[in-house]
Amino acid sequence: MPVQNSSSYRLPPAILWIIILGFSLHFFSVLGYQFGNEVLPKKLNVIIDRYSVPWFYQNYYMFAPDPTYHINSFIYRVETDSGWSDWQEPGLEELNRHWQNRFGNSSDMYDMFYGLSNALFDGIIFVNFIDNPTDENWFSLPAHNAAERYIKKNSTYADAEILSFQVGVKTEHHFFDNELHIQKKEVFQKYPIKTIQR
């Protein structure tokens, strides 16, 4: 029996076109997810969202449409038997390490602090929209809970007997002046002091 070479085993074009259609539909949904909101029918957008999120979710918006004008930093202090500590900025310690070694995990630690800072910043805006906010409004924020987790489990005071603590956000805002130079302004916003119940 003669040996058949691979060219003898050609698939019917219809099958190949069906496979290509599958890949094309995938890319249609990828592009539709990124650009489709304003141009595609709403029902189609819903289907595309359903297909894309979470398995094919992609976010390429860093520095877009514009780079950020402000950076938030997470700050905290704790009260122990020896009194209140100074304000601590753990993200800055990680940044210092990252400037010395770009290939370590300090940037990842910094990114986590940065995410926490932004959540705390958003939390301040959220609570400020509540009429006569109570301490409970502040302390029930997911960002405050996450900050408390850090202070109790990861911070340099994790092993100390913490009586109370306070978190805050330092925001460095950059803006262009009339001569197109960049000017800097810093705002420090504090959450209320939380006493640890014993």
């Binding site: 390429y60 520095f63 449409p65 514009d66 780079p67 960049i182």
Partner: peptide
Amino acid sequence: VSGVWKLKGDLWLDGSAMFLTLS
């Protein structure tokens, strides 16, 4: 995607995005 979204802003087109970022 990244490029088209940058076109929707101001700073990439007026050439100051890199300046602001590095500040």
